[in-house]
Each structure stands twice: as structure tokens, then as C-alpha cells.
Computed example of a mutant assay.
Amino acid sequence: MTEKRKPQQWAPGQSGNPAGRPKGAGKIGEWRAALAEHVPDIMKKLVEQAKAGDPVAARLILERALPAVKPVEQPVSLDLPEGSLTDQGRALLTSVASGVLSPGQGAQLMTALGSLSKIAEIDELAARIAALEKHHERTG
């Protein structure tokens, strides 16, 4: 036999102990508070050791104290041909192949071109529906 579960005593998102232990009140919070006043001296010592050639100190500084450097692509001016979206897509591929655009930039622009084609398709469908409705009003 299986026992029935009791219904929840609290609503979702409501704490069963709202006056419970505050954040940072545990051992880790105590350790952080005890170390907080020493952090500037520790950082100064780490920098001295890194400058003296200590690879572990340098790694700690670079991995923990400084945010990771993210690659940034430089903007590129690109003139796409007038005409169809297919022609513009071919021009993008040519730009990637010739090194004018990075593959990442080319992929992003191709995605944007694909989105533009969907928008153009919706516009064309809306115009066709409007024309059909207008024709139906005249004949109906």
C-alpha cells in the first residue's frame, strides 16, 4: 500500500521559516568577514610574486581577479548589391571567402538576411491578401 502525501503547508515560493538564518551567517560568511580586511595585502603580495615570475600567482590573478577578455570583431563596411536576397547572400559568401568578413560575421549576416527574407515574405502575403479582399469586395 502507498501512503497519501500531505498537501503542502506553504504556497510555492513562500518560505517555511521566513525568520531563518540570514545569508552569510554560516562558517563561510565568518571566514569571508575575517579575510576581508586582509584582501588588499593579499592582492599586493600576489602581484609582487607574479612580477617576480611566479606563474601560480600570475595565474591566480589572471583567472580570479580579472574578468576574461572576450574577443571583439571589428566593424566592417560592406556594400551589398541592389537586387534579390539571393544576390546579397552570394555577395556575403564572396566577402567571407575573400577575407573581407570573418566567418562569424558572415554567419551572423546570413542569419539576418534569412530573417529579412521571412519579413519580406510576410509583407508580400499581406499585400496579396489585401488585394484579394479588395477584389472580393468589388465582386461580392
Results as ranks from 00 to 15, higher is better:
residue 128 R to F: 08
residue 56 V to L: 12
residue 20 G to K: 09
residue 130 A to Q: 04
residue 69 V to K: 13
residue 112 A to C: 00
residue 115 S to C: 01
residue 60 L to Q: 12
residue 10 W to A: 08
residue 86 T to S: 10
residue 92 L to T: 06
residue 127 A to Q: 07
residue 23 K to E: 13
residue 47 V to F: 00
residue 52 A to C: 04
residue 134 K to D: 11
residue 101 L to R: 02
residue 61 I to N: 01
residue 136 H to D: 01
residue 69 V to E: 14
residue 140 G to I: 03
residue 52 A to H: 00
residue 6 K to L: 14
residue 40 P to S: 09
residue 42 I to V: 08
residue 33 A to W: 05
residue 116 L to H: 02
residue 13 G to K: 04
residue 57 A to N: 06
residue 42 I to D: 03
residue 133 E to F: 02
residue 62 L to A: 15
residue 87 D to I: 02
residue 112 A to S: 03
residue 73 E to P: 08
residue 82 E to V: 10
residue 94 T to K: 15
residue 70 K to E: 13
residue 75 P to T: 03
residue 27 K to A: 14
residue 108 Q to K: 14
residue 61 I to R: 02
residue 66 L to T: 12
residue 90 R to F: 10
residue 111 T to M: 12
residue 23 K to D: 12
residue 76 V to D: 03
residue 29 G to P: 08
residue 77 S to Q: 13
residue 139 T to D: 11
residue 121 E to K: 12
residue 134 K to C: 00
residue 31 W to I: 11
residue 90 R to Q: 10
residue 110 M to K: 14
residue 85 L to N: 15
residue 44 K to A: 14
residue 94 T to H: 14
residue 36 A to W: 03
residue 41 D to P: 02
residue 122 I to P: 01
residue 135 H to D: 15
residue 2 T to G: 05
residue 111 T to H: 13
residue 127 A to H: 04
residue 101 L to Q: 03
residue 45 K to S: 15
residue 73 E to V: 09
residue 59 R to L: 11
residue 110 M to R: 14
residue 85 L to G: 14
residue 105 Q to P: 06
residue 50 A to I: 01
residue 57 A to C: 05
residue 59 R to G: 09
residue 47 V to Y: 00
residue 51 K to R: 15
residue 2 T to L: 09
residue 9 Q to H: 10
residue 67 P to Y: 02
